[in-house]
Nucleic acid binder design. Structure first.
Lengths: 232, 232
DNA sequence: TCCATACTTCGACCGTAGCCGAAGCATCTC
DNA sequence: GAGATGCTTCGGCTACGGTCGAAGTATGGA
């Protein structure tokens, strides 16, 4: 009867509220210390330490020692994708938080998903790129077009550098709030970094949400116009 | 701190070994009774009943009453994809079963993933279809080509019928044993049904594995030849 | 050297969730 | 109606896992 890999183990790892909160926080892409993660999980440092050991042993987290701090990050982009896909699934089944909270709208508008832009703005950006022919969409798959290569060069993104890395250039990532795809992969990362560098947007302290400056928002919306929504 | 949908709930649902085994068994696509699922989970009927209630309440399972039986299926194809993706993740992290068991090779060769073919043969089939130009692969995405439409018509699959349904025609599904993509979607389902109808293969009693007849195997391999593996 | 900070380990507590035996419904068969 | 089968509910047991206080180990700074 027991067939295939053991999903119960990682299910159980994610299944604890404190651990789930930690993982969700780390999906923001920033490395966090044990103390910070304890606060996120709403538990004491000792308890957090035990949880972090388990997550590390399970291959979900990667610790990095730096002086007397221990910074934790998600082990891998695949972990981030698993968490996001579970969030999407949870949202579709109505497994929402008890109180939506005031930060929810900001989170739905624009947030970090591991290292790229998600939320309404993330989906909008991908729609616009597909509409203008910079990215080719077939089914779930995304591919950069020759025209797109020029476009990104103009924005200030060196596509050749990105191609050199082993990581896929374009990847579609399902957005839990919009239930549509946004752009992940090294290109998605490069775009978000680009926005930060230009001062169009900034990350927030204790949250995954991304705040655009008024000017940055204007530029962003101008750069990624949407006529009619593109089905994905 | 609490941001986004609650992944802990579904994590916990999947995190129990008995429930995980039930879900894995249901990924085989067949509807199973509470008694059968109790056997799968290695627990008594009462305990299984409680587990099944929870899974149903969580939106993972769909019960169907038939006489004095209650048949359970996965609620949705999205559930199957979640389970498979967790299996892929678990396999990549080495979360394997204690003893691989004698059935393992058969499972890796060919098995059912919800309603389509997975395993070595599933991956091989997709590779071959892409190589011969029947299916277009861009990144993760798959799309039927005009040429492919003819091909499938010849095999005896009415593509027009499939297009009429709301379900996507082609979908890539990550194979946990091969770590490569195989073909899901209504076309994947139609192909597997086609093999069953032709008598090329049959399902096994208590397992997800698919057994090919000697003749069926010959035909399958002839229909889906592979020259050089296609990267996905 | 001494103290503060960051984190881990130990030990004990406790609650929840899984488990089963027994009894209770529901449905089919004869 | 009587009996068999499939499943649920109830009650009580048990164990595992999460929790924290307290003590212990590392690192950095004064």
């Amino acid at each position: 009867m027991k067939e295939g890999p053991d999903i119960a183990q990682i299910g159980a790892l994610i299944g604890d509220p404190a651990r789930a909160n930690m993982l969700a926080a780390l999906t923001g892409g920033k490395a966090l210390t044990a103390t910070e993660l304890a606060a996120v999980g709403g538990i004491t440092l000792q308890t957090a330490s035990a949880h972090l050991s388990k997550l590390e042993a399970g291959g979900l987290l990667l610790p990095r020692k730096q002086g007397r701090h221990r910074y934790f990050t998600l082990a891998d982009e695949t972990v981030a994708r698993l968490i996001e896909s579970m969030m999407g699934f949870a949202a579709s089944r109505g497994h929402l938080r008890h109180q939506p909270g005031p930060k929810e709208p900001a989170l739905r508008k624009a947030r970090i998903c591991y290292d790229h832009l998600a939320g309404d703005y993330g989906v909008r950006m991908l729609d616009s790129l597909v509409a203008k022919g910079a990215i080719d969409a077939v089914g779930d798959g995304l591919a950069l077009t020759a025209q797109g290569e020029e476009t990104f060069q103009c924005i200030g993104i060196n596509v050749a550098d990105l191609k050199a890395s082993r990581r896929p250039l374009c990847r579609s990532c399902l957005d839990w709030s919009e239930r549509r795809a946004h752009l992940a992969g090294s290109l998605g990362k490069a775009l978000l970094s680009n926005f930060f560098d230009k001062g169009w947007a900034r990350r927030t302290a204790g949250s995954r949400s991304v705040i655009f400056s008024p000017e940055g928002e204007r530029q962003f919306l101008a750069l990624f116009p949407v006529e009619t929504p593109v089905a994905v």
